[in-house]
Amino acid sequence: MAEVLNDIIKPENQIYGKSEVLTDNVLHYCPGCSHGVVHKLIAEVIEEMGIQEQTIGVAPVGCSVLAYNYLEIDWQEAAHGRAPALATAIKRLRPDRFVFSYQGDGDLAAIGTAETIHACNRGENIVMVFINNGIYGMTGGQMAPTTLEGMKAATCPYGRDVSRDGHPIKITELLAQLPGTGYVTRQAVHTPAAVRKTKKALRKAFENQKLNKGTQLIEVVSTCSSGWKLTPVQANKWMEENMFAFYPLGDLKDE
């Protein structure tokens, strides 16, 4: 058996490998977390477009604060919510570079709401990758602006009460209304088919940046097994049943 396998496992038979844009650092993300998949997809898109040396990423505060450890490109680590402001200046001062921000729901839709809306409203020629898992992962599972009604979190242990906490915010729908945004889409990475679609969306967003098509927003509805206190498999199922009902997948705008 081993001999047969050795015969199969050789470079010319390899049909899949790790992107060269990914570093060898071990991911700090929990099992079942969507971040690792999205990182991989961005790395593959950068590699396939041949823009590794022209890309500058902006990392947020949140679980993906250390995103700069995983993609072999130049990075800036922003203060919480300020990534769109950094990306604005980077792109305006280096219009020859590909610039993207990578932000979670707390970063993009709570503390950084003003920076997000105004970067989109100016139509900054950047890609914004928005990871929406409805929870604050890094600080230990507190309520996020996108936490669903009734959903439990460390700061709403009996479930989100909209009369007290306000409603979950559909920021992507809001941003799609602004003339400054070009391609706005909501995707997920819970199945191989969804992964392929998200990669296609990311590729399109980076291609659009080359064409100066304004702010490109890719929301990825994501899981947080640790924050949701579910196994990775349960988390995927819970996301399909609950998150997708409120945050339906698909393109919101393509201009």
Binding site: Q76, A79, R82, A85, L86, T88, A89, I90, R92
Partner: peptide, 11 residues
């Protein structure tokens, strides 16, 4: 001003 100082950071 929050945005402008962070634009400085980016630049």
């Amino acid at each position: 001003e929050v945005a402008s100082i962070n634009m400085l950071y980016g630049g």
